[in-house]
Design a protein around this nucleic acid. Structure first.
Lengths: 360, 360
DNA sequence: TTGTAAGCGTTATCAG
DNA sequence: CTGATAACGCTTACAA
């Protein structure tokens, strides 16, 4: 197994000094003056032997494992939030740490077992991530352990969390449409009553109001948050004379369905309908044709913010009360699904005569 | 930080015995007979105090950390292979272990740094995963460390690896089309010269030949492995009289482009063209309309196989020479993009008169 | 400037 | 049946 690694003792022997001295030069302990010559000797031998400290021993002694845990319901399973891992890892690396990642699959039992496993390994802290933005309750086992929540909020004012700024996202989406000249808008929302749904709607409405769009020119419909849901909603929305010229979709998957509805109704994107998505989901947003303009979810940045917050908390012994929280705004990724409304579309005309196909 | 955890010493004190005894009962050491009464007492106290062994100390002593590392070029970054992590984690859990995951982003320097970080933490072994199936060279630092490759093969006969069975995938794709009755086939391949590309082509051709499809009725074209590439290839393929009735795509993203080409040429899927993809990529394969029949990549299973292999190697001290290797066949996920060729399409007719749109 | 020794929390050897 | 005690590899008072 772990082949005979070289220890501090061997370096000491090779350099003809005590292990204390080796430790001192290797750790560059502050108040210690060491003869430059022996110092060189130690360094040379350490390098020659390829010495690397055994962090288990080190951790045992110092009570710092330089290890954090990233625990999530579906963190690794879905294509969705892998960038959270990446963000966390990047800052972990900067802090000489490495991260354990565990998936719980929403099973409380698994979650508890895994938290125990991490705690037994003396992780310095834990990042607790949710797959989709939602309020959570912190597992009891985590009380007293430095923790920060990602993509989740928590009632306990002592625990820091970071979530996407949903309202800002809604505003930005609206802005993308409004500044292109659209004045008849629609929001195809998720049916679920979650922060992402009402947050985005709130922002979207706010911005539309600010541009003077009257209530009746902003339609909001809800559907399942998948392509089929988007499709269903869009056919209702688009198959009428006073149809919206700009549609904002709860997510890119729904946007996929909206594209299909538009195609079936022989409406072109973006000239007949402009579309804005949400998520900037890999391979969808840029795979659609034309490319989907969409609001990106700040997964990477949330991972970074949370990890930084965590290391701060670890270093300082305790988080401030109340703990810091953050809503991160994601950028809007401009592609080709938004254009000024065409004259005809603004008048509710179709570009081509209808040719509804039979396939559902 | 890691709040005052209870140690074996405290349990011993509470139970009025020595730590040796506590260790013995907790570990159920074989040849040790312990008085049932003290045994109960120890167990009770341990439970009452909520004792959990400090695995750092344990690992230091036993030289087994119950920890493995999963290192990959883009493992966590992309939506693609997250299931590898999941598979590895599941078997790790079964072995009382937990997994460090690190991303290298193809940077050799980062890779070396991270490998060091893992080794210093005494990981019991390492899973080395590639984002896409390819041959790799094992980093020198990993020599002597139990390692198994995932989605990558290696010239060194001492290291075990697991990859998708590309040829079998190609065969299965062909079979899906052929058994539905298709006899004019096409394969839209990736331009890159990688195992996935030639493996799938080989399998596809073999199966077609077995069904007696003449050479000239099996066209193979290559393009960039993205939606645009698929689109380009498909317009060439479909815009002719003797067009194929069944198309196999190198991946689901290319299939996305093929769908678009078909729609523009006013060809329906699956009645006018049947399509088979590869990857069963989340949110694409089932987001397309109609749902894409596709060959799934066995990511989860590769993670499982590799981890099991790794733990075996760890337990037995060394891998057998030559090391075991495995090509895993992924299932074909049947959705709605394959149907028998229609009479008309078999004759090369279009269902509707062409209505080519202007938008590129 | 360098070394001795205690201790981090376990397991394992060997006596009692 | 139970308990000292050494050892795992390291850091850190404290001593020399």
């Amino acid at each position: 197994m772990a082949q005979n690694r070289v220890t501090i003792k061997q370096v000491a022997a090779a350099a003809g000094v005590s292990i204390t001295t080796v430790s001192h030069v290797l750790n560059e302990v502050p108040g210690k003056r060491i003869h430059p010559e022996t110092r060189e000797r130690v360094l040379a031998e350490a390098a020659r032997l390829g010495y690397a400290p055994n962090m288990l021993a080190q951790s045992l002694r110092t009570q710092r494992s330089h290890t954090i845990g990233l625990i999530g319901d579906e963190i690794a399973t879905t294509p969705f939030a892998g960038k959270i891992i990446l963000g966390a890892q990047d800052v972990a690396t900067a802090h000489d740490s490495v991260v354990f990642v565990v998936n719980t699959g929403y099973e409380r039992e698994v979650e508890n077992r895994e938290i125990d496993a991490l705690l037994r390994r003396q992780v310095d802290g834990i990042l607790y991530a949710a797959m989709y933005h939602r309020p959570v309750e912190l597992p009891a086992k985590l009380a007293g352990v430095p923790t920060v929540l990602i993509n989740a909020s928590c009632a306990d004012p002592a625990v820091p969390w970071v979530v996407p700024d949903e309202a800002a996202g809604g505003e930005d989406a609206a802005e993308a449409l409004l500044s292109a000249g659209h004045r008849r808008l629609a929001f195809v929302n998720d049916v679920d009553d979650i922060p992402a749904a009402f947050g985005r709607e709130e922002g979207f409405r706010r911005r539309a109001a600010a541009w003077g769009v009257p209530q009746e020119d902003l339609r909001v419909v809800a559907a399942e948050a998948d392509p089929e849901g988007g499709y269903q909603a869009a056919v209702r929305l688009l198959d009428e004379v006073e149809r919206p010229t700009g549609i904002f979709c709860f997510n890119d998957r729904m946007a996929m369905g909206v594209y299909r509805a538009a195609a079936e109704l022989d409406l072109r994107v973006p000239s007949d309908v402009s579309i804005v998505g949400f998520d900037n989901q890999d391979f969808i947003a840029d795979g659609l044709h034309p490319g989907l303009t969409t609001v990106e979810l700040p997964h990477y940045d949330m991972g970074v913010w949370a990890a930084e917050q965590l290391f701060e908390q670890i270093a300082s012994g305790r988080s401030g009360h109340p703990a810091p929280t953050k809503r991160l705004r994601g950028p809007v990724i401009h592609r080709n699904s938004v254009a000024p409304p065409s004259r005809g579309s603004a008048l509710g005309e179709r570009h081509h005569p209808i040719d509804r196909r039979g396939n559902a």
